[in-house]
Amino acid sequence: MESGLVGELGLGLLGRRMIHSIFALEVCMPLDPILHRALRGLIVDGTEAASFQEKWSLYRRVADILMGHLERVERGCWDYFDDDARALRDFDMWVKGMTTKEGARTEPSGQADPYRGTARYMTVTMAFLLVNNSPTDLAISSLCNIPEPDLWKRATFARILNGLGAVSFASVKSDTLYVIPGDDGWGLTIEDLGEPKFEYLRNVV
């Protein structure tokens, strides 16, 4: 039993087979066109290749923007798992959330009436496939060591977003960042958010 565990970890740590962790975070808030434009710009204006520093700056900027609007976040969720199989599976799931456009609307919802209409919502999602047990992984693990009653508190989201500055992208194998909607006339409606596919989003308190 012990030799099996030693063998698996040893292989991983010696680089023959990489072990992964995953960190992901998603927030949902009323669609603010200015905020939306800023976040969208960070994605579409990016280059096809990026250095570690550019990646760090990108997510630092995203985190700063979200921190500035954290009071408006109504729902959200975050994940951290250091089980390799789960990390790979969940990262793939988060990426598919973008590539399959699962959460996106298929038709416009129209601009929300700022005075009387029902709100439109946007989601911002990020996920990192981390090298397990790397300094960044350990830092994220520590950051995400949150007591159960506090998991979905706004203060917890603030702690995590603030802590993303500890990420060294040298320890990130892959990452994804996406915003729903792409066009602010395609914002999510409250009915959209009531669909089972958004069940995972928790009320942020």
Partner: peptide
Amino acid sequence: LDEPGIVGARW
């Protein structure tokens, strides 16, 4: 992806 419903990237 840069579409009306969603905008995003993976690296």
